[in-house]
Design a protein around this nucleic acid. Structure first.
Lengths: 321, 321
DNA sequence: CGGTCAAATTGACTTTTGTCAATGGTCGTG
DNA sequence: CACGACCATTGACAAAAGTCAATTTGACCG
């Protein structure tokens, strides 16, 4: 993206202030404008990624528990948000995940983004950056739910924050018949988008539950009863709108066959798969995702970390005896 | 580098302030310390690279002249510092170069650094960062000059700023006999260091003049008269302590044979070669360096940019007629 | 032209941040 | 165990940054 003339002054102010370390009044004098304008330009510069402020997330990986989880589950990196010794414990995981995400993004990357409350919460607290050559693609079809965390919203908001190209997915997440889903999947536009997913450098998603509180239910893609039935058939979690069993494999069911979404093999082909889990009740879904190799980088809170580790230790003990 | 316990609190304060956007008094309350301490911790966090503030350098590449120079000389990227419409025009090039340099450094990189006033000026204004897995190596031997911009100083200062490992070069830049230089070059420690240079991902150097004002003369490696003689033999510039002719090739002379430094082929093997030139009188040396393919990324001021472009256009005209 | 409106800019005020001398605590030493 | 040197911490003040209503600018239109 070429710099628009109006941005020149913003850029210049940011440069004098942040790179040269001048004070706002000195910048104002330099540019022959009021200090109030400088303050405004600087805010704009921060909000457009002309200046980047990032804080190291070392503190959250540099922890025995995190290392143990990495070893136990064979992950590349784990970050643990400490439990709320401060204002808003619920905000900690998304804030951390947003930082981690920005740290994992590289120049020229293609990034796949799924959807959900967690993903949207991350997008919402993400710092602005100026990564013009980055592309953000939607990992799964859309649904017309009246929620802010719809797939297209998640993708677009993240693309906006990064100043990146957002590539939306113009198909419903789930169709009424398997035949229609198959036909739609082979439409050139859709097929290309699905095929391109495995070329991503980084993916971001959470893992959903398979109960009445699941987003798939709340958005009307499945009824509560249908979900119950699926759970009896082995449904353990939701990834990019699709239902997986406790081994992390795609569940063999009509719903999945009616879904338009990234297939799990494509997801696994993405070198960095950042999974972020917040809610207490996503323990089993997360285990399923981990078992299926759907995660390489993980952001969780301390309570979840504890449970994961206890689970791994118990499993080891069972194996040993 | 593991986080020391004393850094924990600094990290936490930085996290609450920069990532969560709390105010200093809120952070102080959270951590049960005074706001003054928070302010101090935050300064420390900035100075140790726990938080990174960087400003885009787009403005300086996004310019017709820069593009024209890229095309004319076949460079990967060119940044042009505008001439002093502000406080300290002399500071502009180093500040810009430092920003560009940080932008070019990647995770796990090995970086070669030469020496000189310019390089030291860059180190001196460089922001702090926390790139634990980066190595900074010295590109050429040392000299005992009483100047701050000695090769080892340049290397160490940059390593310190980046929180990276600094690898110094424990040999003199120039010896009294060719034989001794040859022997020293084949010492295992030295040989390894020289051999490792071509594995660098990024190099940073300026290009020196070949007159009485040259650093090689000022530091006593050559007398003014010897330098005059070399200039008559075709010396056109100095790169990493070695003398090049106007084609950018190593000049065939005793001095060069007595030098312990990165050979030019090794330098050319480094994918990103950032050359920074400040002083007016380095035009011819820079041309020599460009001719020798010693530069892929260039930071100069507007006046130098003008001269380069005029030169290239004149050369084209000569070719055409 | 003169009028209208939205957007940019500013002066004046408030809030937040930076600074530093004074304080208190810690550790090594005699 | 008393002493003093040293460093982290703090309270109080000064400096800088943020905010917002009021004003100016400039673009558009009848």
């Amino acid at each position: 993206m070429a710099i628009r003339p109006a941005d020149q002054i913003v850029h210049k102010a940011a440069w004098l202030y942040y790179a040269h370390g001048l004070r706002q009044d000195q910048v104002a004098q330099q540019l022959n404008i009021s200090r109030a304008s400088v303050a405004m330009y600087l805010r704009k510069a921060r909000e457009t990624g002309i200046v980047n402020i990032s804080t190291s997330t070392q503190l959250f990986t540099d922890d025995v528990t995190a290392r143990e989880i990495e070893d136990a589950f064979g992950l590349d990196a784990v970050w643990i948000a400490p439990h709320g010794d401060h204002v808003d414990p619920a905000a900690e995981v998304p804030v951390l995940a947003a930082s981690v995400f920005l740290q994992l993004v590289g120049k020229g990357d293609k990034i796949g983004v799924a959807w959900g409350q967690t993903v949207y919460a991350i997008a919402d607290v993400m710092a602005y950056a100026d990564l013009q050559d980055v592309t953000v693609v939607q990992l799964c079809g859309n649904l017309g739910a009246p929620f802010a965390y719809r797939p297209d919203q998640c993708t677009m908001e993240i693309a906006r924050r990064l100043n990146a190209k957002g590539l939306n997915f113009y198909a419903p997440l789930v169709l009424s018949t398997e035949g229609l889903a198959k036909d739609l999947r082979s439409e050139p536009v859709i097929r290309e988008q699905l095929a391109g997913i495995s070329e991503c450098d980084l993916a971001l998603y959470s893992i959903g539950t398979v109960d009445a509180g699941s987003h798939v239910v709340k958005c009307g893609a499945l009824t509560s009863d249908e979900m119950d039935a699926l759970r009896r058939e082995g449904a353990a979690g939701v990834v990019a709108g699709q239902i997986i069993d406790n081994k992390g494999a795609l569940l063999d069911c009509s719903y999945n066959r009616r879904c338009i979404s990234a297939d799990l093999a494509s997801l696994r082909a993405i070198p960095k798969r950042l999974v972020v889990v917040q809610e207490e009740n996503k323990f089993e879904p997360l285990l399923a995702g981990l078992a299926g190799g759907l995660c390489t980088h993980l952001v969780i809170n301390a309570a979840m970390a504890r449970r994961l580790l206890d689970h791994a230790k118990a499993a080891n003990r069972r194996k040993a005896s």
